[in-house]
């Protein structure tokens, strides 16, 4: 059960970091034409406004993805915790007797 918890944690981290990385790419790509248009003086103020809105929109979408991911992670962890019950104890003693050792090593 601990391994499943670990997997949940890893998937959650992966989704979070991937969303952030893709968001950066998305922002960069979306801003490329606007950055060019912004250099044309009569369009500058209008493009700046559009760019601000667009960036807010993109960031909001990825923030939603990260939030849903976090909440899903919490939910799955909670379910696994309840479902695992006393098995986590058994798993701990069997699969990860070095947990304490690992912490010591890190320290």
């Amino acid at each position: 059960m601990r391994k499943l918890q670990g997997l949940t944690q890893l998937v959650q981290d992966a989704v979070d970091k991937s969303a952030t990385a893709i968001e950066d790419v998305h922002l960069a790509v979306a801003n490329e034409p606007l950055n060019i248009l912004k250099k044309i003086p009569p369009l500058t103020p209008a493009v700046a406004g559009i760019q601000k809105m667009l960036n807010h929109g993109i960031t909001a979408v990825y923030e939603i993805i990260r939030t849903v991911n976090r909440e899903t992670g919490k939910m799955v962890s909670g379910v696994l915790g309840k479902f695992g019950g006393d098995t986590s104890e058994a798993d701990d003693s069997g699969d990860r007797p070095g947990k304490k050792q690992q912490k010591n090593t890190k320290a």
């Binding site: 391994k3 944690q9 890893l10 990860r96 007797p97 070095g98 947990k99 050792q101």
Partner: peptide, 8 residues
């Protein structure tokens, strides 16, 4: 990350 998947 102290992830339980890390092998000791």
């Amino acid at each position: 990350q102290n992830n339980p998947l890390a092998v000791c």
